[in-house]
Design a protein around this nucleic acid. Structure first.
Length: 364
DNA sequence: TAGGCGTGGTA
DNA sequence: TTACCAAGCCT
């Protein structure tokens, strides 16, 4: 009986997907697959890593850049971590980029350059966890496994009116998703659930009248789907302070250095500054300068990280001799776009030099 | 296991 | 402005 209901729900959703699926650069449409085309595991992997906690719109331009520059696992493995970090700069969660390189190396070394084809084997690779391993296995290899991302958590929590708060409800949600997942087309089913969550079963003001599952939805029957999923309250976000020092040579070049290899923004580039962290305020005064110069305070920039807010006092010194700093390297302003600069550092540089990054964000 | 880990868009 | 959200992973 339950099996028949599950079959009914998955069939109706797959029919909906056939008509309403999103067209995405890394996705094969259902009709393409019926015509015999197979998803490229490398493209699926790359897109899934980029999409972790990141919107489709933010990912698109990066995906095009990466798939053109490194079109397969061999090319990715041949790239250096620094090249990959520079191309990733601005997308956030930089451990994803470092793990991309590590996983590519592991696939070359341990799997003969071919992607493992099961979720269990995929999950052993760096940066691939419960969600991503299941997504790649289902989409690229047809493994009938429960794929659970944030969208699917929301859809399932509403469909069954699950009152247990997240993350405690994860086990029940996974079990429900597993019961719905069909033996045939598990990848399309997972993507259909995600598309439903992204377009219809949205966090706020879901479009229930358009939902192919509205007749089955317990939360809708209870008249307020927005009450689900129930979530535990989040910790508040502390404010931290620090200082950043933009040293400018007489030809306009800027002094950069590399961050440590662990923690926040690991292995990315930065301008010199005081030591700040999510737990500790840094010195905001000119006393934190990396070397003596005519430092002028040019303002305070604010940047929101997931777990804290950073307010950086930005100082500038012009006509700094290139021989002054003990370490780091000088970069002309026209070349800044090629550096592994996180957005917070671009903001600091822009505060000191409004003409830098004048073009703003990268184009599509 | 709960917290560390980015960024940009939206209301 | 503030708060929350978006295809999570790792320790």
């Amino acid at each position: 009986m339950h099996h028949l209901i599950a079959n009914e729900i998955s069939s109706r959703l797959l029919d909906w997907y056939g008509v309403h699926h999103r067209i995405l650069p890394w996705r094969l449409s259902p009709s393409d697959q019926l015509a015999g085309k197979k998803p490229d595991p490398y493209a699926v992997w790359l897109s899934e890593i980029m999409l972790q906690q990141t919107t489709v719109e933010a990912v698109k331009s990066y995906y095009y850049t990466f798939i053109q520059r490194w079109p397969n696992i061999r090319a990715m493995a041949a790239a250096s971590e620094d090249e990959i970090l520079r191309a990733w700069a601005g997308l956030g969660y930089y451990s994803r980029a470092r793990n991309l390189k590590k996983a590519a190396d592991a696939i070359m070394a341990k799997h003969g350059g071919r992607f493992p084809e099961t979720a269990a084997a995929l999950k052993t690779l760096p940066g691939i966890g419960d969600y991503t391993s299941a997504a790649i296995a289902a989409i690229a290899f047809g493994e009938p496994i429960a794929v659970v991302d944030g969208n699917i958590e929301r859809v399932i929590a509403r469909l069954y009116a699950i009152a247990t708060p997240l993350p405690a409800a994860k086990a029940e949600i996974r079990q429900r998703m597993g019961a719905l997942t069909p033996e045939q087309r598990p990848g399309d089913f997972a993507q259909a659930m995600m598309d439903l969550g992204a377009m219809i079963c949205t966090p706020r003001r879901p479009a229930c009248s358009l939902c192919p599952l509205n007749r089955d939805c317990a939360a809708l029957a209870g008249h307020d789907p927005e009450l689900f999923p129930v979530k535990a309250p989040k910790a508040e976000r502390p404010v931290r302070t620090g200082a950043a020092f933009v040293a400018i040579a007489d030809d306009g070049a800027i002094l950069l250095q590399k961050r440590q290899d662990k923690g926040l923004l690991a292995n990315m580039s930065e301008v010199p500054g005081s030591r700040w962290s999510a737990r500790l305020d840094g010195d905001t005064s000119v006393a934190a300068a990396p070397f003596p110069a005519q430092w002028e305070h040019v303002g305070v920039i604010s940047h929101i990280f997931t777990h804290f807010e950073l307010r950086l006092s930005v100082y500038r010194a012009r006509n700094v001799a290139r021989s002054t700093p003990a370490h780091g390297w000088w970069v002309k302003q026209a070349q800044l776009g090629e550096e592994a600069l996180p957005t917070v550092m671009k903001k600091a540089i822009a505060a000191a030099l409004p003409e830098a990054f004048k073009q703003g964000k990268r184009q599509h």
